[in-house]
Protein backbone atom coordinates (compact mmCIF):
# COMPACT_ATOMS: atom_id res chain seq x y z
CA UNK A 1 0.00 0.00 0.00
CA UNK A 2 1.23 3.50 -0.87
CA UNK A 3 2.34 5.38 2.26
CA UNK A 4 0.46 8.54 3.20
CA UNK A 5 3.51 10.04 4.85
CA UNK A 6 7.08 8.87 4.42
CA UNK A 7 10.35 9.84 6.05
CA UNK A 8 13.49 8.96 4.10
CA UNK A 9 16.85 9.04 5.89
CA UNK A 10 15.93 12.04 8.01
CA UNK A 11 18.70 13.73 10.02
CA UNK A 12 18.01 16.54 12.46
CA UNK A 13 19.90 18.51 15.10
CA UNK A 14 19.30 21.78 16.91
CA UNK A 15 22.28 23.84 15.77
CA UNK A 16 25.37 22.97 13.75
CA UNK A 17 27.51 22.00 16.74
CA UNK A 18 24.87 19.94 18.55
CA UNK A 19 24.70 16.17 18.25
CA UNK A 20 22.12 14.67 15.91
CA UNK A 21 18.75 14.03 17.59
CA UNK A 22 17.61 12.01 14.59
CA UNK A 23 20.16 10.24 12.45
CA UNK A 24 18.84 8.53 9.36
CA UNK A 25 15.24 7.90 10.38
CA UNK A 26 13.10 5.96 7.89
CA UNK A 27 9.37 5.59 8.42
CA UNK A 28 6.30 4.84 6.32
CA UNK A 29 2.87 5.80 7.62
CA UNK A 30 -0.06 3.91 6.12
CA UNK A 31 -3.79 4.62 6.45
CA UNK A 32 -5.81 2.87 9.13
CA UNK A 33 -2.87 1.97 11.34
CA UNK A 34 -1.86 3.10 14.82
CA UNK A 35 1.87 3.66 15.21
CA UNK A 36 3.31 3.87 18.69
CA UNK A 37 6.74 5.41 19.16
CA UNK A 38 8.33 4.81 22.52
CA UNK A 39 11.56 6.20 23.84
CA UNK A 40 13.11 7.84 26.86
CA UNK A 41 12.69 11.52 27.63
CA UNK A 42 14.92 13.52 25.30
CA UNK A 43 15.19 10.72 22.76
CA UNK A 44 13.71 12.90 19.99
CA UNK A 45 10.06 11.73 19.87
CA UNK A 46 8.66 15.27 19.93
CA UNK A 47 11.18 16.45 17.33
CA UNK A 48 10.20 13.54 15.08
CA UNK A 49 6.49 14.46 15.32
CA UNK A 50 7.28 18.13 14.60
CA UNK A 51 9.18 17.08 11.48
CA UNK A 52 6.28 14.86 10.39
CA UNK A 53 3.91 17.83 10.84
CA UNK A 54 6.14 20.09 8.77
CA UNK A 55 6.85 22.35 11.72
CA UNK A 56 10.58 21.59 11.66
CA UNK A 57 12.68 20.99 8.61
CA UNK A 58 15.16 18.09 8.55
CA UNK A 59 18.81 18.94 7.95
CA UNK A 60 19.11 16.01 5.55
CA UNK A 61 16.60 13.57 4.12
CA UNK A 62 13.06 13.85 2.80
CA UNK A 63 9.54 14.05 4.18
CA UNK A 64 6.97 13.04 1.59
CA UNK A 65 3.23 13.50 1.83
CA UNK A 66 1.35 11.43 -0.72
CA UNK A 67 4.63 10.92 -2.59
CA UNK A 68 5.46 14.65 -2.91
CA UNK A 69 7.76 16.72 -0.69
CA UNK A 70 5.75 17.98 2.28
CA UNK A 71 7.61 21.31 2.32
CA UNK A 72 6.28 22.20 -1.13
CA UNK A 73 2.69 21.53 -0.08
CA UNK A 74 2.66 23.77 3.00
CA UNK A 75 0.68 25.49 4.47
CA UNK A 76 -2.33 23.93 2.69
CA UNK A 77 -1.15 20.38 3.46
CA UNK A 78 -1.51 21.09 7.16
CA UNK A 79 -5.20 20.38 6.90
CA UNK A 80 -4.24 16.73 6.28
CA UNK A 81 -2.07 16.56 9.41
CA UNK A 82 -3.20 17.19 12.97
CA UNK A 83 -0.73 17.39 15.81
CA UNK A 84 -1.35 17.35 19.55
CA UNK A 85 1.50 18.96 21.46
CA UNK A 86 2.91 17.40 24.59
CA UNK A 87 2.11 20.52 26.60
CA UNK A 88 -1.44 21.63 25.80
CA UNK A 89 -0.82 25.01 27.45
CA UNK A 90 0.93 26.22 24.31
CA UNK A 91 -1.78 24.88 22.02
CA UNK A 92 -4.64 27.02 23.24
CA UNK A 93 -4.72 30.57 21.97
CA UNK A 94 -8.40 31.35 21.50
CA UNK A 95 -10.79 33.03 23.94
CA UNK A 96 -13.23 30.17 24.57
CA UNK A 97 -13.19 26.40 24.19
CA UNK A 98 -15.74 26.74 21.39
CA UNK A 99 -13.51 29.17 19.49
CA UNK A 100 -10.48 26.96 20.11
CA UNK A 101 -12.15 23.93 18.54
CA UNK A 102 -13.65 26.12 15.78
CA UNK A 103 -10.30 27.77 14.88
CA UNK A 104 -9.34 25.33 12.11
CA UNK A 105 -12.84 24.47 10.77
CA UNK A 106 -13.60 28.19 10.42
CA UNK A 107 -10.84 28.38 7.80
CA UNK A 108 -12.44 25.56 5.81
CA UNK A 109 -16.19 25.63 6.30
CA UNK A 110 -19.08 28.04 6.85
CA UNK A 111 -20.29 28.85 10.38
CA UNK A 112 -23.10 26.22 10.30
CA UNK A 113 -20.75 23.37 9.35
CA UNK A 114 -18.15 24.67 11.82
CA UNK A 115 -20.69 24.56 14.64
CA UNK A 116 -21.72 21.02 13.70
CA UNK A 117 -18.09 19.88 13.78
CA UNK A 118 -17.34 21.61 17.07
CA UNK A 119 -20.34 19.98 18.75
CA UNK A 120 -19.50 16.55 17.31
CA UNK A 121 -15.86 16.73 18.45
CA UNK A 122 -16.91 17.91 21.90
CA UNK A 123 -19.44 15.08 22.17
CA UNK A 124 -16.87 12.46 21.17
CA UNK A 125 -14.53 13.57 23.94
CA UNK A 126 -17.22 14.36 26.51
CA UNK A 127 -16.47 18.06 26.84
CA UNK A 128 -19.80 19.60 25.78
CA UNK A 129 -20.04 21.29 29.18
CA UNK A 130 -16.74 23.11 28.61
CA UNK A 131 -17.63 24.79 25.31
CA UNK A 132 -18.47 28.21 26.72
CA UNK A 133 -15.57 28.26 29.19
CA UNK A 134 -12.51 30.50 28.68
CA UNK A 135 -9.49 28.38 27.80
CA UNK A 136 -7.49 30.03 30.61
CA UNK A 137 -9.79 28.56 33.26
CA UNK A 138 -9.31 24.89 32.31
CA UNK A 139 -7.35 22.27 34.22
CA UNK A 140 -4.31 20.63 32.59
CA UNK A 141 -6.28 17.48 31.68
CA UNK A 142 -9.17 19.51 30.27
CA UNK A 143 -6.73 21.56 28.18
CA UNK A 144 -5.28 18.37 26.76
CA UNK A 145 -8.70 17.04 25.71
CA UNK A 146 -9.74 20.43 24.27
CA UNK A 147 -6.50 20.51 22.27
CA UNK A 148 -7.34 17.04 20.94
CA UNK A 149 -10.87 18.14 20.01
CA UNK A 150 -9.40 21.13 18.17
CA UNK A 151 -7.57 18.66 15.90
CA UNK A 152 -10.27 16.11 15.21
CA UNK A 153 -12.75 18.89 14.37
CA UNK A 154 -11.13 19.43 10.96
CA UNK A 155 -10.81 15.72 10.22
CA UNK A 156 -7.14 15.38 9.23
CA UNK A 157 -5.89 12.19 7.58
CA UNK A 158 -2.78 11.85 9.77
CA UNK A 159 -3.05 12.43 13.50
CA UNK A 160 0.14 12.90 15.52
CA UNK A 161 -0.33 12.67 19.26
CA UNK A 162 2.56 13.59 21.55
CA UNK A 163 2.01 11.75 24.85
CA UNK A 164 -1.79 12.11 24.66
CA UNK A 165 -2.54 10.09 27.78
CA UNK A 166 -0.23 11.77 30.27
CA UNK A 167 -1.99 13.52 33.17
CA UNK A 168 -5.47 12.35 32.17
CA UNK A 169 -7.84 10.79 34.67
CA UNK A 170 -9.02 7.23 33.83
CA UNK A 171 -12.39 8.21 32.34
CA UNK A 172 -10.84 10.76 29.96
CA UNK A 173 -8.06 8.26 29.16
CA UNK A 174 -10.67 5.67 28.19
CA UNK A 175 -12.47 8.16 25.91
CA UNK A 176 -9.20 9.18 24.22
CA UNK A 177 -8.23 5.53 23.64
CA UNK A 178 -11.69 4.80 22.16
CA UNK A 179 -11.35 7.83 19.94
CA UNK A 180 -7.95 6.67 18.68
CA UNK A 181 -9.41 3.25 17.86
CA UNK A 182 -12.36 4.77 15.99
CA UNK A 183 -10.06 7.12 14.04
CA UNK A 184 -7.96 4.19 12.88
CA UNK A 185 -11.12 2.25 11.99
CA UNK A 186 -12.15 5.18 9.77
CA UNK A 187 -8.88 4.85 7.86
CA UNK A 188 -6.89 7.60 9.56
CA UNK A 189 -3.23 7.10 10.33
CA UNK A 190 -2.46 7.74 13.99
CA UNK A 191 1.03 8.18 15.43
CA UNK A 192 1.37 8.21 19.21
CA UNK A 193 4.44 8.83 21.31
CA UNK A 194 4.82 7.65 24.86
CA UNK A 195 7.67 7.12 27.30
CA UNK A 196 6.11 3.81 28.27
CA UNK A 197 4.42 1.21 26.04
CA UNK A 198 2.24 -0.08 28.89
CA UNK A 199 0.29 3.21 28.93
CA UNK A 200 -0.95 2.60 25.41
CA UNK A 201 -3.23 -0.27 26.35
CA UNK A 202 -2.70 -2.52 23.31
CA UNK A 203 -3.90 -0.05 20.71
CA UNK A 204 -0.70 -0.17 18.64
CA UNK A 205 -0.58 -1.86 15.24
CA UNK A 206 3.09 -0.98 14.81
CA UNK A 207 5.44 -0.38 17.72
CA UNK A 208 8.68 1.49 17.21
CA UNK A 209 11.46 2.46 19.57
CA UNK A 210 13.43 5.66 19.14
CA UNK A 211 16.86 5.37 20.63
CA UNK A 212 20.12 7.18 19.85
CA UNK A 213 18.47 8.94 16.93
CA UNK A 214 17.36 5.74 15.22
CA UNK A 215 13.97 4.14 14.89
CA UNK A 216 13.72 0.38 15.40
CA UNK A 217 10.72 -1.92 15.19
CA UNK A 218 9.49 -3.41 18.44
CA UNK A 219 8.83 -2.03 21.91
Amino acid sequence: MKPLLELRRVFFRYGKRSPYILSGVNLKIIRGKVYCIVGENGSGKTTLLHIMAGLLEPEKGEVLLDGKPLKEQLPRARRLIGILFQNPETMLFNPTVYDEIAYAPRQLFDEGETRKRVLESARLLGIEDLLERPTTSLSYGEKKVVALASIISYDPEIILLDEPLSNLHPERKRRVLNMIRSLAAKGKAVVITSPDLELLDNICDVTLTLSEGRLKEGG
Binding site: P75, R78, R79, G82, A104, R106, Y154
Partner: peptide
Amino acid sequence: GYSKRLEMAIKARTFTEYPFEVR
Protein backbone atom coordinates in the same frame (compact mmCIF):
# COMPACT_ATOMS: atom_id res chain seq x y z
CA GLY B 1 10.99 29.33 23.78
CA TYR B 2 7.35 29.77 24.68
CA SER B 3 6.63 32.06 21.73
CA LYS B 4 8.30 29.56 19.37
CA ARG B 5 6.11 26.75 20.68
CA LEU B 6 3.04 28.95 20.41
CA GLU B 7 3.96 29.94 16.87
CA MET B 8 4.25 26.23 15.99
CA ALA B 9 0.84 25.56 17.53
CA ILE B 10 -0.74 28.34 15.51
CA LYS B 11 1.04 27.23 12.33
CA ALA B 12 -0.05 23.62 12.84
CA ARG B 13 -3.71 24.57 12.57
CA THR B 14 -3.42 27.39 10.04
CA PHE B 15 -3.90 26.43 6.42
CA THR B 16 -3.15 29.83 4.93
CA GLU B 17 -0.07 32.07 5.06
CA TYR B 18 -1.44 34.23 7.86
CA PRO B 19 -2.98 33.19 11.14
CA PHE B 20 -6.57 34.28 11.78
CA GLU B 21 -7.16 34.59 8.04
CA VAL B 22 -10.75 33.80 7.16
CA ARG B 23 -12.18 31.65 4.39
